[in-house]
C-alpha cells in the first residue's frame, strides 16, 4: 500500500479491484442463494472476478502481458465446461426428483 497515488489509480488496479469485489459478491451469493442453478451463476461471477484480477495486474503502462491473457482464455473455456457439467447435473437431479414424486407425497422425499 506504499505505492504512489498515480499507480493506485492506474487502469490495471481499477479493474483488478473490481475483480476482487466481484469475487466477494459471488462468494456471498454462493453462500446465501439456495437454488443450485443460481449458485452456478455465482461460481461464474467468482471466476470472472479472478480473471479480472489476473488481467488487471498484467496491464502495464504501455502494454498488456500476454501470459495472463492466455491463462484467462484457457480459464474461460474451462469455466464453460464446468458450467455445462454443473447445469447437466442440476437438470438430471431435478428429473430424478420429478420421477420419484408421484410415488411419494411431496418434496419431503428427496431423490435417492
Amino acid at each position: 500500500m506504499d505505492l504512489p497515488l498515480p499507480v493506485l489509480l492506474s487502469t490495471g488496479h481499477l479493474y483488478a479491484v473490481t475483480g476482487a469485489a466481484l469475487v466477494g459478491l459471488g462468494l456471498y451469493a454462493f453462500i446465501t442463494l439456495r437454488h443450485p442453478l443460481r449458485q452456478l451463476l455465482a461460481v461464474n461471477v467468482v471466476g470472472a472476478g479472478i480473471f479480472l484480477i489476473l488481467g488487471g495486474l498484467g496491464r502495464g503502462p504501455d502494454a498488456t502481458d500476454p501470459f495472463p491473457q492466455a491463462l484467462v482464455i484457457t480459464g474461460i473455456v474451462v469455466a464453460v465446461a464446468l458450467t455445462a457439467f454443473g447445469a447437466a447435473m442440476i437438470v438430471r437431479q431435478a428429473q430424478t426428483r420429478a420421477a420419484a414424486k408421484p410415488a411419494a407425497d411431496d418434496n419431503e422425499n428427496p431423490a435417492p
Binding site: 500500500m1 505505492l3 488496479h13 483488478a16 475483480g19 462468494l27 495486474l57 502495464g60 503502462p61
Partner: peptide, 22 residues
C-alpha cells in the same frame, strides 16, 4: 465476504500492475 474483499483488494493493490513478460 466483506472482510475477504478488503483483504483481497489490499493484496491486489500491493502488487504494481506490469507487463514484464511482454
Amino acid at each position: 465476504c466483506a472482510g475477504f474483499v478488503v483483504l483481497l483488494a489490499a493484496a491486489v493493490l500491493s502488487i504494481p500492475p506490469e507487463s514484464g513478460l511482454d
